[in-house]
C-alpha cells in the first residue's frame, strides 16, 4: 500500500539569475518501508524532506503533487497541515543541541509534543512519556524527564528527539541526517533504535543522508539525488551494482577501512551536469 506519493515535485528559490529549482521534477512512491535519500550538499535532499511537510517558506516556492494516506497534501489548508505535522508525519533533525528547547525540561517537551495532538488526563500523559522514554532505551526515564537539554549527551538528546517525534504515533518519519552530529559509537545505536521503532509501529521511514554506506545499511531502497533530480534508485542490497556514473563516483570516492589505493578517484562534475 502506498503511504506517500510524490509526483513531479519542484522547489524553487529566486536568485539574481532568476528562479532556480533546487528540487527539479522529483517523483517517487513510498510504502511502509525504509527509503534512503542520498546526495551531497546542494543536491536537494533536505528540501525534499521539508517540501513533504510543506515547510518551504516564501520566497521559496513548491509545485507538484503530494499525496499522503490518500489525501492530497498540496490542497490542504494550513490549519489541516498543522494538525498533520507531527501527528501523522514527523521529522527528526540533525543536531539535538539546536532542535530541543533549551529552557524546557526533556519531559515537558515530550509531553507538549503529545498534548498538541491528543488531550489526555495528566496521569495518562505522564505514563505515555515514561513509556516512550523507555522505548528509546533510556534506562532511568523519571530522572531523564527532569533534565534540561544541556544536561544530556548528544546521543541521549537524539533519543529524546526521537521520543518526541514518535509519541503522537505518526505513520511516516522523516529523519534528516539524524546521526551526523553524533560520535560513531552512538550513531549505530540511534539508527538501530529508529529502525526498531519504525518496524514495530509499521511506519514508513525516509532517511536523508550524505553517507551512502550508512544509508545502504539501514534502508530497503535508495534514491540518489544530484542537482535536484533523481539520479538513480535501487534496492539497498544492489547498491554495489549501481550503474549511474554519479552513484559509482560517490561510492568510489569514500576512503575504505582497508585502503590500498594510492589516490582516490575524483568525480568530473561536468560529466553529468545534464542529468
Amino acid at each position: 500500500m502506498t503511504l506517500l506519493s510524490v509526483e513531479n515535485l519542484a522547489v524553487s528559490f529566486p536568485t539574481s539569475r532568476g528562479r532556480v529549482n533546487v528540487v527539479d521534477g522529483l517523483s517517487f512512491e513510498l510504502g511502509r518501508e525504509r527509503l534512503g535519500i542520498v546526495g551531497e550538499s546542494g543536491s536537494g535532499k533536505s528540501m525534499t524532506g521539508r517540501a513533504i511537510l510543506r515547510l518551504i517558506r516564501p520566497p521559496g516556492r513548491m509545485t507538484g503533487r503530494l499525496s499522503f494516506e490518500g489525501r492530497d497534501l498540496t490542497s490542504l489548508g494550513e490549519r489541516d497541515m498543522r494538525a498533520l505535522r507531527g501527528a501523522r508525519i514527523s521529522m527528526i533533525m540533525q543536531d539535538p543541541r539546536y532542535s530541543l528547547n533549551p529552557v524546557m525540561t526533556v519531559g515537558t517537551q515530550i509531553e507538549e509534543a503529545l498534548w498538541v495532538h491528543e488531550r489526555l488526563p495528566r496521569r495518562d500523559m505522564r505514563a505515555r512519556v515514561r513509556d516512550m522514554l523507555e522505548a528509546v532505551r533510556i534506562d532511568d526515564p523519571d530522572r531523564v524527564a527532569r533534565l534540561y537539554p544541556h544536561e544530556v549527551s548528544g546521543g541521549m538528546g537524539q533519543r529524546v528527539m526521537i521520543a518526541m517525534m514518535l509519541i503522537p504515533r505518526p505513520s511516516l518519519l522523516i529523519a534528516d541526517e539524524p546521526t551526523s552530529a553524533l560520535d560513531v559509537s552512538v550513531q549505530g545505536d540511534v539508527l538501530r533504535l529508529i529502525d526498531d521503532l519504525v518496524r514495530d509501529h509499521g511506519m514508513g521511514l525516509i532517511l536523508i543522508s550524505h553517507d551512502l554506506p550508512l544509508v545502504a545499511r539501514y534502508c530497503d531502497r535508495i534514491l540518489v539525488m544530484n542537482a535536484g533530480r533523481m539520479v538513480e534508485t535501487c534496492n539497498a542490497g544492489d547498491l554495489h551494482a549501481a550503474s549511474h556514473p554519479y552513484t559509482r563516483g560517490l561510492l568510489a570516492a569514500v576512503p575504505r577501512m582497508h585502503e590500498t589505493r594510492d589516490e582516490l578517484p575524483v568525480m568530473d562534475r561536468s560529466a553529468w551536469a545534464g542529468t
Binding site: H210, G249, L250, A253, V254, P265
Partner: peptide, 14 residues
C-alpha cells in the same frame, strides 16, 4: 566536506 570534495583534499594532502 562532501565525500567527493573530501577525496580531492585527501589526494592534495597526500
Amino acid at each position: 566536506l562532501d565525500v567527493s570534495v573530501q577525496a580531492e583534499i585527501l589526494n592534495l594532502l597526500k
